[in-house]
Design a binder for these strands. Structure first.
Length: 107
DNA sequence: CAGATGACCGCAG
DNA sequence: TCTGCGGCCATCT
């Protein structure tokens, strides 16, 4: 298991795994919630390097603009299965689908 | 050690 | 909306 600081990876994976269905998070948010505010880039790297045999809904992680991850095809389908409504252009409505603790009260 | 790369972010033009 | 530029930080060459 290569670098990427196992500690950091675990923090990221933990956050990503607890994202509720129908919700998404930006790399930045995941980085912050993981305890590494400026590690947005490393989050991307960590997810890319993430083991496939692991239960990791990385498709719920999008860019800050709500744009789906580049170089990735099935993410759109996966999100649709979760119940996330995408804009005609294939972008996520962050104002509604961005996960925040406020949603926990309603959920 | 130095330079390039990337599933990023934010601000201009 | 897209492009360019700087900043960010681990990984690769």
């Amino acid at each position: 298991m290569p670098p990427a600081s196992a500690t950091f990876c675990q923090a990221v994976y933990a956050v990503v795994e607890l994202i509720p269905p129908g919700k998404v998070l930006s790399y930045k948010s995941v980085a912050v919630l993981s305890g590494y505010p400026s590690y947005a880039r490393q989050v991307g790297q960590a997810l890319k390097r993430a083991p496939g045999g692991r239960h990791l809904p990385c498709h719920r992680v999008v860019t800050h603009s709500g744009r789906l991850v580049p170089h990735w095809k099935e993410q759109r389908e996966l999100l649709l299965q979760e119940g996330v409504r995408l804009s005609p252009q294939g972008t996520v409505d962050m104002q509604q689908f961005a996960w925040r603790y406020d949603d926990l009260a309603d959920d």
